[in-house]
């Protein structure tokens, strides 16, 4: 079917989003830096290497269990920088506000952003505000961009060029919390749940991992599209495959229960504080042990490994011992999750 309009699925982070990027944005914006399509772009400026990224936040509702849109605006951009291997330094903040939006709610959000920026060790150094007529936006949309410094020996992390067969795949905790927390916070489902968003800046945790080893070969934060999307990006068009042990992937009981109720796959549900790492097999257990001591890595686990068979594909060994492929989310799952 020929598409004439933007669908909600184009913003899902799944296949439709990738299609839009490949067929429209890349077609016109194409350049060698953008073509790498990492979470951050790697820029050589003088003798420095910088990571640069941008992200917009349109979550609904703007307040949800364990966070608000302001937490996302900081964590989202800090994490995109941190997973490129960079030390995040400076952020911009752009606000699109709807006429009539509560000033006190805005203050809560701005205060949250200031606190989180401080925690993450970044400064908000430039900003912009626009207001649109009532009904032309939904309360508040935020854009943040960020810059960080990338050490020479971490340049390969974005592309994963050093990944080898036998490397282990690590995640810092349970998947699906953020997506289900936001979903539950939406009144239409009338679900009371204890699920809390996992929203968190991850640069501190990532620093801890690097203190253990420099053999971290790839990192991505698993946001929209969830763990599955990150894994798909990891193995697609590669000369290696990925094998994941379903049982090894932490999922909280209340999240898997709610996913079951709604027909979602927790592996495809959004997170805002989860990083997937590919680490040399020798160092993997030490990295997990170190992460488990950090507040954002208590449930860290090795969930799978890089395999020499089925190149370009990802397999899950299911909880009952069966085998199936890993698939990326297609179309709309939960619009406006971040």
């Amino acid at each position: 079917m020929k598409r004439e309009n933007i669908l909600l699925g184009h913003g899902s982070g799944g296949k439709l989003s990738h299609d839009l990027i490949d067929k429209l944005f890349m077609k016109y914006f194409d350049n060698e830096i953008l073509a790498s399509q990492g979470d951050s772009s790697i820029l050589e400026v003088g003798s420095q290497t910088l990571s640069f990224t941008t992200d917009s936040f349109v979550v609904s509702p703007i307040f949800f269990p364990n966070g608000n849109i302001g937490n996302l605006a900081i964590a989202g951009t800090v994490n995109d920088l941190a997973v490129s291997g960079a030390k995040p330094l400076y952020l911009s903040a752009g606000f699109i506000l709807e006429e009539g939006f509560s000033l006190s709610e805005l203050e809560i959000i701005v205060k949250t952003m200031a606190e989180d920026a401080k925690k993450a060790g970044v400064k908000i150094v430039t900003g912009d505000t626009k207001v649109v007529e009532r009904g032309h936006a939904d309360k508040i949309f935020i854009n943040t961009s960020g810059i960080g410094i990338l050490a020479e020996n971490r340049k390969g992390i974005s592309s994963g060029e050093d990944i080898r067969v036998g490397d282990k795949i690590i995640i810092n905790g349970a998947v699906g919390d953020h997506g289900m927390a936001v979903m539950a916070a939406r009144n239409e489902l009338k679900i009371n749940s204890e699920i809390k968003s996992d929203c968190a800046p991850l640069n501190g945790l990532i620093d801890v991992a690097f203190e253990v080893t420099d053999k971290i070969k790839f990192m991505r934060d698993a946001t929209r599209g969830g763990l599955s999307s990150v894994l798909t990006e990891l193995f697609e068009r590669k000369s290696f495959g990925v094998e994941i042990m379903e049982e090894a992937v932490p999922v909280h009981d209340n999240v898997s229960g709610m996913c079951e109720l709604l027909g979602f796959d927790p592996f495809q549900v959004a997170n805002e504080g989860k990083v997937v790492m590919v680490v040399d097999a020798d160092a993997a257990e030490d990295v997990v042990a170190a992460m488990q001591k950090h507040k954002y890595g208590k449930e860290a686990a090795i969930i799978g490994e890089i395999t020499g068979t089925h190149a370009g594909k990802g397999w899950i060994i299911t909880s009952i011992g069966g085998k199936r492929v890993i698939d990326m989310l297609s179309g709309e799952q939960l619009p406006r999750i971040c």
Binding site: M1, K15, W315, R324, V325, D327, S330, G331
Partner: peptide
């Protein structure tokens, strides 16, 4: 594909084509 389905079996989460596409059990 589920993104651009031709038939309903690829659309529905219960459709056989969707299930096979998504999981391709060995």
């Amino acid at each position: 594909t589920p993104m651009d389905p031709v038939g309903p079996c690829m659309v529905s989460s219960e459709g056989a084509c969707h299930a096979y596409y998504k999981y391709q059990s060995l």
